[in-house]
Design a protein around this nucleic acid. Structure first.
Lengths: 348, 348
DNA sequence: CTGAAAGCGCTTACAG
DNA sequence: CTGAAAGCGCTTACAG
């Protein structure tokens, strides 16, 4: 008097889900053979393969990941770890954009994404503990500040890891995917020069982040190439927040009232710059041209809409996932730098 | 010649992590006793408890969740499932806010959050399959549109579930946590009336969402209470996006050029309304008062800053997690309605 | 190509 | 209060 079926089979069945054993029975093979089919079908006769697949369909079998994990040591999941202060993260559309795209990309591989936010020290410890305990197979790390201990810890623990953005600590050989910040900045500033601007200011990101440093370097490159003088009065630093862009623009207007363009290292900060400019009675782009960076939703939401440098977030996420999965499969850490693109709108 | 220690013990150790067996050996007890300590310490002598805890510290033991899951049938994780079209989700700060807060709240319970986005039919199927296969213990569901099949499917599969916002399908007895939309809308409109406004328009959310329906009802309540006539020309509908707010405001200005206030069912739409008003040359709040809803980052980013109705997202997330965990532990689904609060800024 | 069997690390009745 | 043992559902050498 045993269960005869496979006819209900819904995996959601809160009763007893079919196991590999049920499939084996229905298919008339051993459990080992079922497992082989599940894992790529090597060393399985066409007939057995067919029978097993039919049995899987019939029973509605879904693998028990916990059981699999216990023997393979792999969880089949990946962490998306954020180490920035929480508030900023979610105000900045870049982050949520990246999160969304990585989730979708991983879904294609049937790999769930665990969202981890290490805003406080306590959260950081908790997350590290979880990760290093082997509960995830790898980490997509969103962290850019110099001296973030997380990268080193993860690296030391031997956890497969890929960063979004270049690591500030060049010595660490960690996999990463980034847009070509320096080249993007060069393009924007060259464009401003070619539009006839001569007093071009910049609002940089924090100078302990690659986006802060490299976009500033690109700005300098193009100024030099155009034979324009370097003037420190034209350089102000923000923290990627909208508010910091506003503050930076106020400083710039005071130090260099004759500026006729501003290259801003992020679209969100550029929104702040736009606000400050408007308050100061400067018209954009007539009096002052404003160039952003990111091509995030903030760029189209701004008024005037921002001329900006597009970071290919879709490709960035796809590459991050690809590089991470390769590492999980034993490849060496890889670095991928993706080209940017100038997007012309109304602000410059 | 066997491993003697417990002295390295780092869980991140890619070698062999200490198991319950190691802890038992070090503590001089059986594995069953260690397990009992791990699971609350019932039926364990103080001495044994002490010894086990010491051994855990010494070995750096961390439970293997996969092994535990296999026997308990619980994964120890929870899904955060979004069933709205992706783009909207991440443009709207409410969603990312909620995501962030739920993640933090769950972290307090050591429960990882799996982010699932069901934008396409394919993604929906994939996620449902994962969830109903028992890979998560419960679901935090962010979905508001009427006729979303996910709620019913989850309910039928017997998966513990809590929705953010009232379910549109009243027949379904599903747990949910929501702000008091109707009352919040009443408060805002009453405030507008008390400020002397008489031609008060509204931009509603989609009328197949509770936020659309209930905030409109609250608007009507307060108009009636004030003895103001109901005028359908004063009602326009948006889809919660900024752009839709802009469009709705244009319609309203055309149909009722004499309007002196607009109650907008979300801050993001209110931003759009502000833009349309500015273009039409109406001063806010002098000519037209604008009231928002949510008190999201969009409210403070708007110019003028929005007077709005605060949804207590921190409490909402905390309650969602609490109600979900209670259900996982066998409680019946509960509904929690939280009060809102009027936040005065510059737009009204 | 295939089956029988060991083993992954836990929890939980069951005796005592 | 505690230990010995079964069992959760898989994968993977190992024989054949």
């Amino acid at each position: 008097m045993t269960r005869t079926d496979g006819h209900t089979g819904r995996a959601g069945d809160r009763r007893r889900a079919p196991t590999i054993h049920d499939v084996a029975r229905v298919a008339g093979v051993s459990r080992g053979t079922v497992s082989r089919v599940l894992n790529g079908g090597q060393n399985v006769s066409p007939a057995a393969l067919e029978a097993v697949n039919a049995a899987i369909r019939k029973t509605g079998y879904v693998v028990n990941r916990a059981a699999r994990q216990m023997v393979t040591g792999r969880s089949g999941s990946v962490a998306f770890l954020l180490t920035e202060p929480q508030e900023r993260l979610f105000d900045d559309p870049n982050f949520s954009n990246l999160l969304r795209l990585c989730t979708a990309e991983l879904a294609l591989h049937d790999i769930p994404l665990l969202l981890m936010i290490a805003g406080t020290e306590d959260e950081r410890r908790r997350n590290m503990r979880y990760i290093t305990a082997g509960h995830v197979d790898g980490v997509l790390l969103i962290s850019s500040h110099f001296g973030d201990p997380v990268t080193a810890e993860l690296k030391k623990a031997g956890v497969p890891l890929v960063m979004c953005g270049k690591p500030m600590d060049h010595s660490a050989k960690v996999a990463h995917v980034a847009a070509d910040d320096r080249d993007g900045a060069r393009d924007m500033v060259r464009y401003l020069v070619e539009s006839g601007r001569r007093r071009i200011a910049t609002v940089t990101g924090p100078l302990d982040t690659p986006g802060g440093v490299d976009r500033l370097a690109g700005y300098r490159d193009s100024l030099t190439a155009a034979g324009l003088p370097a003037d420190e009065a034209l350089i102000a630093t923000g923290d990627y927040s909208r508010r910091s862009g506003e503050l930076a623009a106020e400083q710039l207007l005071e130090r260099a009232p004759d500026l006729d363009a501003v290259f801003v290292a992020s679209d969100l900060m550029a929104q702040g710059v736009l606000a400050a400019l408007e308050r100061a009675g400067r018209r954009v782009p007539q009096d002052v041209a404003v160039g952003g960076f990111d091509d995030s939703p903030a760029a189209t939401a701004a008024r005037p809409a921002l001329t900006t440098i597009r970071q290919p977030y879709d490709r960035i996420s796809a590459e991050m996932v690809r590089v991470l999965l390769a590492q999980i499969d034993g490849d060496d850490p890889a670095a991928v730098i993706l080209p940017t693109e100038l997007v012309r709108r109304d602000s410059a």
